[in-house]
């Protein structure tokens, strides 16, 4: 299986990533891609910018480990995970998870699985700057923990 994990400041091209995922196997019949974008508001406040920090080295290891777990659960041909760090503006792309499989159920489920674990395990932290000049660290959400737990049943 082809696994690509990329963490950095650079933006990504969803179309190019899709073609790359498709190119790994002529048996590939389903590609599912998730793209996370930055929203322009949070908890009722307008958000101007967001800064993403991570733990270099551990982040890549952690995501690769999550992809390995997905691969053990579903038959996949290729997985690409891209996560941006640094300063982002509203509507900027933050994260990309793309999976290629023979059938759509495996592709949909593994893509969700990877995202749910990434959100709760990969060492990234968001700090947002609001319209009124406040800088604050974003709190982890309980709903993300619950989303991950459904894969443990």
């Amino acid at each position: 299986m082809s696994v690509i994990v990329r963490v950095g400041e650079a933006d990504f091209d969803v179309g190019a990533e899709c073609r790359a995922l498709a190119s790994h196997s002529r048996q590939s019949g389903a590609i599912v891609q998730f793209v996370g974008l930055m929203r322009d508001s949070n908890q009722g406040d307008d958000v101007l910018t967001m800064e993403l920090e991570h733990y270099p080295g551990m982040t890549e290891r952690c995501i690769t480990e999550i992809v390995n777990r997905a691969q053990q659960r579903w038959p996949l041909f290729a997985v690409t995970v891209i996560h941006r760090v640094g300063v982002l503006q509203p509507q900027d792309q933050i994260v990309f998870v793309g999976v290629s499989a023979a059938h759509r159920q495996d592709a949909f489920q593994s893509c969700e699985f990877i995202m749910d674990y990434l959100k709760t395990e990969a060492p990234f932290w968001k700090k947002e700057c609001t319209l009124n000049g406040e800088q604050r660290w974003v709190d982890a959400r309980q709903t993300d923990q619950q989303a991950r737990k459904r894969w443990q049943d």
């Binding site: 996370g36 991570h54 733990y55 995202m115 990969a122 060492p123 932290w125 709190d139």
Partner: peptide, 9 residues
Amino acid sequence: AFYPPVTGG
């Protein structure tokens, strides 16, 4: 390393 709950994605 010590860190708070993660908030990526």
